[in-house]
Design a protein around this nucleic acid. Structure first.
Length: 553
DNA sequence: AAGCCCCAG
DNA sequence: CATTCTGGGGCTT
């Protein structure tokens, strides 16, 4: 249909960053003595990943513990069932990469795509373009073809390659992690080329070598985006290799796939991928799960869920948002089919259950109430009077009360997150300095993050300074007490902006009118009744977002 | 919106 | 083969 769908443009510059054996590196940072031993990260009966010393023994991803120990009797194991430290480190990496572009997409905990098209163009415009090809030293160039493409992609990718080198240096200097990078004109190729040289290396692909790279893959399942199910269907059509997929008739593929999916798959086989790098923000869900040998008693379920819930509450607190929906996941073991599948049940929950601020101070009644809700859901999933066996329990929180959108709101200023400063501005700021020692200019020459000279001061409005001062009260919010009168609708005739009862009015009146209006409107919006799972009378709810920074102590 | 499946690391 | 512990997205109802 549309010719453009098949057109392969090279206008973008995409970097894929992959932290080497991520869990293992995090554990080694925690316990440096593990650095020189074969190390495996264990979850239940499985070695989910390992360091490169262990890999020399043949340890592979998700290998059974018994098998791994046979291959490497001296394998040192660390339990990695709690992903907290990995998650924390993962977001640190993403935050560093956001200095190079606002367009950073996370994939799992250890990978990021960065669209550096804009930064590359900035660098191209800069008069100071260091001559030569420093790329040759730091980057593997994948493919045997010479690049004849004249669209300008060659120089763009080479600049991208320099940026990738800086990124990896920054990640190493700031966080102590080694990583790999792939540089290409789309996500698919950046990711694939990234994996061609490991560990602690980077690789670049010029578009003319895209086909060669794709054909170097063993089978269609090695193409990111083609998983088990899709490859099984392709197999039924006799399509196994990348070449098979390239040569397949679209009409043939269309027999078993929607036409869009058929085109998409065939495009992948040619290395064509026009999908944009999508900004990752806060996660859309927060969940914990625990698999277990066998659970067959209700009180056992309750105990496990209670443990998960307490841990999850810590995550919610750190996140700052309030969830509106809770989801229970179980996995039943089916003896007959010798198979297991997951089942879920979700329900809306009053976000106020999660407002206690510090979990240590959280009302134990609250935990019990949430637990009751979970057990009710469990009884809807499992007929508890008959024998049952469960092999996994999970709790997930989804559909959070949103913060106001970035552009229209003051909330972003209130975030605890470190403000991300564009690398372009950093370069502009540092452009006068000359540092003969370091060959890079931007963030890698910017090691001491505590140095105020290093991070350019963001524009500080009076308003933002005001908000910053309030941040100090953020550690533990106090529950706000609302009165019935606060629920009255603002009449149209009222000129003065109403003051939420949770805020000291004298403070409120000092605020700019715009901000007063925003606070009132947020407050008003927070006064929504959520269906309570119990039959108790509905309570009046307090608010969840920026209002919390202003509540009376 | 609920619940399933598919994808990823 | 899936196995762990997550998280995103899409399809069907």
């Amino acid at each position: 249909m549309n010719v453009d769908e098949y057109k392969d443009e090279h206008a973008r510059t995409i970097i894929h960053i992959d932290i080497d054996c991520f869990y293992a590196q995090v554990e080694i940072l925690k316990r440096p003595e593990l650095k020189n031993v074969p190390l495996g990260i264990q979850q239940k009966n499985i070695v989910v990943t390992s360091n490169y010393i262990a890999r020399e023994f043949g340890i592979r991803k998700c290998m059974l513990l018994t098998e791994a120990m046979q291959l490497c009797p001296n394998l040192v194991l660390v339990n990695g069932e709690d992903l907290n430290d990995y998650r924390t480190m993962s977001y640190k990496v993403t935050t560093l990469l956001q200095k190079y572009s606002e367009i950073v997409e996370r994939l799992g905990l250890d990978e990021n795509f960065v669209d550096v098209t804009k930064l590359v163009e900035q660098k191209l415009k800069n008069t100071d373009r260091s001559a030569g090809d420093p790329n040759q030293d730091v980057t593997n160039i994948v493919g045997s073809n010479d690049s004849y493409c004249q669209c300008g992609c060659e120089i763009r990718l080479k600049i991208g390659s320099l940026i990738a080198d800086e990124m990896r240096r920054l990640i190493h200097n700031q966080l102590g992690l080694t990583s790999c990078a792939g540089i290409a004109h789309n996500k698919l190729l950046a990711k694939i080329v990234c994996s061609t040289h490991k560990p602690n290396q980077q690789s670049m692909l010029f578009p003319d070598s895209a086909l060669e790279l794709m054909l170097s893959l063993n089978n269609v399942e090695s193409i990111p985006g083609i998983g088990r199910a899709t490859s099984d269907i392709l197999k039924s059509l006799g399509v196994r290799t990348v070449q098979d997929l390239q040569n397949a008739e679209l009409s043939e593929l269309h027999r078993l796939f929607e036409i869009d999916k058929a085109k998409f798959l065939q495009n992948l086989s040619f290395g064509i991928d026009n999908s944009p790098v999508k900004k990752s923000g806060k996660p859309l869900s927060l969940g914990l799960e625990d698999s277990c040998k066998l659970i067959c008693a209700e009180n056992e379920v309750k105990e496990k869920l209670g443990d998960l819930l307490k841990r999850l509450l810590l995550l919610v607190e750190a996140d700052g948002r309030l969830p509106k929906t809770i989801k229970l996941t179980i996995r039943k073991f089916d003896k007959l089919t010798n198979t297991s599948r997951r089942e879920t049940k979700q329900t809306n929950i009053n976000p106020q259950f999660f407002t206690s601020g510090c979990v240590s101070q959280m009302n134990p009644n609250n935990i019990q109430k949430i637990l009751m809700i979970l057990m009710n859901m469990f009884r809807k999933l499992v007929r508890v009077h008959k024998p049952f066996h469960i092999t996994l329990l999970g709790i997930s929180l989804v559909k959070f009360n949103e913060r106001p959108s970035f552009r229209n709101s003051i909330a972003p200023f209130l975030r605890k997150d470190i403000e991300v400063q564009s690398i372009i501005s950093i370069e502009n700021l540092n452009s006068n300095e000359s540092s003969p020692e370091s060959r890079t200019h931007s963030p890698s020459s910017c090691r001491e993050s505590s140095d105020p000279e290093c991070e350019p001061t963001p524009k500080r409005t009076k308003l933002s300074i005001f908000k910053r001062n309030f941040l100090e009260y953020d550690t533990c919010e106090s529950p706000s007490k609302l009165r019935v009168q606060d629920l009255q609708l603002t009449s149209d005739s009222v000129q003065k902006v109403r003051c939420p009862s949770s805020i000291d009015e004298s403070v409120f009146r000092e605020l700019p009118l715009e901000m007063q209006q925003e606070l009132w409107s947020e407050y008003k919006n927070s006064q929504i009744d959520y269906a309570s799972c119990e039959n108790k009378p509905k309570k009046i709810k307090s608010t969840n977002t920026i209002l919390n920074y202003f509540v009376k102590q």
